[in-house]
Design a protein around this nucleic acid. Structure first.
Length: 597
RNA sequence: GCCCCUGUAGCUCAGUGGAUUAGAGUGCGACGUUGCGGACGUUGAGGUCGAAGGUUCGAGUCCUUCCAGGGGCGCCA
C-alpha cells in the first residue's frame, strides 16, 4: 500500500527536523491538480512551536521536502497553497501496484477477540426494519473486524421474558378465545401464519395494557413467565436457579403455570425458528444466543454483588443505581416485585457472554433510543467489574422511520422486513423477468437484500434514516444494485476473454479515467481501516459508489476486449481488479455480488 | 424543567480546522451508444451550510447563546 509508504517516509522526514508527531494526516486528493495524496503537516507543525521559534508553514514544508529527498515512486513533490505538500505518484508506480492487487486480500494483522452483539429481536414480536438496520450494521462490523484479522463472535441477545412477553401471551390467550381456537389449532398452521398470529396477539395485549384494566393480571402473568422460564432451563439444561421468583407470588395455580409454560416454550421456539430463516436470508450466522431469561439471573447476582459493595442501593423496595454521580440518571435494576429490569438483564449479559467467549472488546449495536440508558448500564458495570466495563462499546444506530412516523410494535404500526422485502422483490423480479430460471429466485433475493442493506448502510449508523418505502430502496444511482450491476457487467466482459491475464506494467500512457481508477484502488485498504476505526460501514459504501462510477465512466468511454494488444491486457487486468474490490467491498457490507443479473 | 442527538440543494445524504467555485444521488431541463450488458454515461439549473456572536492566518467543521425537530429523564424494552 503506497499510502503507508508515503506516511512512513514523511514521518521520518518530520522527526529528523526535531518535531514530535503522533499522527500524520495524509489525505487522498479530490482535485488531480493537488496530486494523489496531500498533507497539511507543515501547517500543523507551524502551530506547535512557541512564537520566538516560529517558522512559516512554507519554510517547514520546504525543509520536509528536503529531508524526503528523491523518492523513486513519485513523479513530483510540491508545496502548494499555504504550505500543503502534494505527492504525485508515477504512473509506473500505480501500474505495478495493480499487479500486486489483482488477487487482492486485505492484510490480516490484528488478532483481537471481538464480540459483536446485534439484531436482538424479541420472540413473540415482529421482525421489523429496525432489526434489519441493526443486523446490517452489526454484520458489516463483524466482517470488517474479520477482514482485519480479528476473531469475531456474533452474539444475539433477546428478550424472552419481561412485560412485552406477558403482553404477548395475554394477547394470545385472548385472541384464541375471541376466535374460538385452541393452542393446538395454532400448532397446525404454517410457521408464517403462527408468527403473524403472535404478532397480532402482541398488539392486542399491548393495547389492553394501555387501557389499564388488566394490568394487575398481566403483572402476575409476567411473574408466572419468569417462573416458567426458570423451570424450563432447569429441566432442559440443568440450570441451577440463582433467583427465587416464586416468593413474589402469593399463590400459584400449577395448572395455569403449566399452560403458560407450554405457550411460552412453544411460542418462543416458533419465533426463534422464524428468525433463523430471516438470518439465512440476510446472511448472518450467530455464534451465541443470550436470552434474557438467563442473563437476568446472571445480572441478578451481578447487582447483588454491587449492592454489597455499595455501588447499588435500595430505594422504595427496588434496587437502583444512582447515575447522577456520573452526570446520568438513576435507573431501577431490580423492581419492587424482585424482578430484574432490562438494565439487569443487560448488565448480566456481559458476564454471560464473557463466560463463553473471552473477548478483548465487545461492541453492542442497538437503536439509539436507549443511548442514555446504556451509559448508565456501562457506568454501573465499570464500578462492579471494571474490566468488562472498559471492554464494552455501545453503538446506538438511528431509528428507521417511515414518512408517517416512527414504527413501534407496541402501537401496531410496524413495518416488517417481510413487507419491505415483498415490495423490493417485486421491483427486482420485473427487471429480471427474462432471467434463466435456475438462478432466478436466488438472484432476485441477492439483489433485493443488496438494495435494502445498502440503502441502510450508505448512511452513518448513528443518524436516523427516513424511509420512503417506495423510493428509498432505489435500484439506480446511490444503490446496492448499481454496484452489483457494475460488478456483473465487469464479470461479463471478463468471461468473454479467453486468454490468460498477463502482467501489463510496460504500458506507455494511461488515460485519465484509467489513472483515476488505479488511484482509487490504491486506497481501498485505507478505507477499510477507516471504517473499522470509526465503526462506520458507510465509508465502504461511499467508496464503492465512487469506484463503480469511475469504472462505469471508463467502461462507457473505452473499449476493453478490442483495445489492441498492450492496452487490452492492461484493461482486462484493471477490470478484474475493480471487480474483485467491488465484490470484497460488498461482502464487507454483507451483500452478495451475483455474476449475472 | 434537565440531559443527549440532529439541522448542509425540492427530497435523501457525504463532507479529517485547510486549497479558485461547499459535493454525491434523486427529482426537474437538455443530451449520448450501427459498440464488451442503457439498472449506464454526459450536461444544465438548483445553497444566506438553522440564526447570531466568538476563537483562528483559515470555520459547514471548534466554543457560547438562541431557534426548530427527535430521543431520554426509578420500577416497559
Amino acid at each position: 500500500m503506497l499510502k503507508k509508504r508515503i506516511e512512513e517516509d514523511l514521518k521520518k522526514a518530520v522527526e529528523d527536523l526535531g518535531y514530535s508527531v503522533t499522527d500524520i494526516v495524509l489525505t487522498s486528493s479530490k482535485n488531480p491538480l493537488f496530486g494523489d495524496y496531500s498533507t497539511n503537516i507543515a501547517l500543523q507543525l507551524a502551530k506547535q512551536r512557541s512564537s520566538n521559534d516560529k517558522q512559516s508553514p512554507q519554510e517547514i514544508a520546504k525543509k520536509i521536502i528536503g529531508n524526503l529527498g528523491n523518492l523513486s515512486y513519485l513523479s513530483n513533490l510540491e508545496i502548494a497553497g499555504g504550505g500543503f505538500i502534494n505527492f504525485f505518484l508515477k504512473d509506473e508506480t500505480l501500474l505495478s501496484n495493480l499487479g500486486s492487487l489483482s488477487n487482492l486480500s486485505l492484510q490480516k494483522k490484528n488478532h483481537e477477540k471481538v464480540m459483536v452483539e446485534f439484531t436482538d429481536p424479541n420472540p413473540f414480536k415482529e421482525f421489523h426494519i429496525g432489526h434489519v438496520f441493526s443486523n446490517a450494521v452489526g454484520e458489516s462490523l463483524a466482517r470488517l473486524f474479520e477482514a482485519r484479522g480479528d476473531v469475531v463472535w456474533r452474539a444475539n441477545f433477546f428478550g424472552d421474558v419481561g412485560m412485552h412477553v406477558a403482553k404477548a401471551i395475554y394477547g394470545i390467550l385472548n385472541k384464541l378465545k375471541r376466535e374460538d381456537l385452541t393452542f393446538r389449532d395454532l400448532e397446525k398452521m404454517p410457521l408464517s401464519e403462527r408468527i403473524k398470529f403472535m404478532g397480532q396477539a402482541y398488539v392486542l395485549g399491548a393495547a389492553a395494557y394501555e387501557e389499564d384494566r388488566p394490568k394487575e393480571e398481566m403483572e402476575k402473568l409476567n411473574l408466572l413467565i419468569f417462573v416458567a422460564a426458570q423451570q424450563y432451563w432447569q429441566e432442559a439444561k440443568g440450570w441451577e436457579p440463582r433467583v427465587d421468583y416464586r416468593k413474589h407470588i402469593n399463590h400459584i395455580d400449577e395448572e395455569e403455570l403449566k399452560e403458560i409454560k407450554n405457550i411460552w416454550i412453544t411460542g418462543r421456539k416458533w419465533s426463534l425458528e422464524y428468525f433463523e430463516t430471516i438470518y439465512q436470508l440476510l446472511g448472518t450466522k450467530f455464534d451465541g444466543y443470550y436470552p434474557e431469561s438467563l442473563t437476568g439471573e446472571w445480572g441478578y447476582n451481578f447487582v447483588l454483588e454491587g449492592l454489597k459493595k455499595g455501588i447499588f442501593e435500595t430505594s422504595e423496595g427496588a434496587i437502583i443505581y444512582r447515575g447522577e454521580k456520573h452526570g446520568l440518571h438513576t435507573r431501577v435494576f431490580i423492581n419492587k416485585l424482585g424482578l430484574p429490569t432490562y438494565e439487569t438483564k443487560d448488565i448480566g449479559n456481559a458476564p454471560h457472554k464473557y463466560s463463553e467467549f473471552k473477548y478483548d472488546k465487545s461492541v453492542i449495536v442497538t437503536a439509539n433510543e436507549i443511548n442514555e440508558y446504556f451509559k448508565v448500564v456501562i457506568a454501573a458495570m465499570k464500578e462492579v467489574n471494571p474490566d468488562l466495563g472498559r471492554k464494552t462499546i455501545h453503538l446506538g444506530h438511528g431509528v428507521v422511520r417511515l414518512k408517517s412516523g416512527k414504527m413501534s410494535s407496541r402501537t401496531g404500526t410496524v413495518f416488517t422486513l417481510e413487507e419491505l422485502f415483498e415490495i423490493v422483490k417485486s421491483k427486482i423480479a420485473a427487471l429480471l423477468k427474462d432471467f434463466p430460471d435456475s438462478e432466478k429466485e436466488q438472484t432476485i433475493n441477492k439483489v433485493s437484500i443488496g438494495a435494502i442493506k445498502f440503502a441502510m448502510l450508505k448512511h452513518q449508523p448513528e443518524v436516523d434514516t427516513i424511509f420512503d418505502i417506495e423510493k428509498s430502496v432505489a435500484l439506480e444511482g446511490d444503490s446496492g444494485p448499481y454496484i452489483q450491476y457494475t460488478y456483473a457487467r465487469a464479470r461479463s466482459v471478463l468471461r468473454k476473454n479467453l486468454s490468460d491475464l498477463s502482467d501489463s506494467s510496460n504500458l506507455s500512457k494511461l488515460e485519465a479515467e484509467e489513472r483515476q481508477i488505479l488511484q482509487k484502488i490504491e486506497y481501498f485498504d485505507g478505507v477499510v481501516e477507516e471504517a473499522i476505526q470509526s465503526l462506520h460501514p458507510n465509508i465502504i459504501a461511499s467508496y464503492l459508489l465512487e469506484l463503480a462510477a469511475n469504472f462505469n465512466l471508463f467502461y462507457q468511454k473505452y473499449r476493453i476486449l478490442d483495445a489492441g494488444e498492450g492496452k487490452k491486457d492492461f484493461r482486462l487486468s484493471l477490470t478484474n481488479t475493480v471487480a474483485n474490490i467491488l465484490k470484497q467491498g460488498l461482502f464487507l457490507l454483507g451483500i452478495e455480488a451475483p455474476e449475472r443479473m
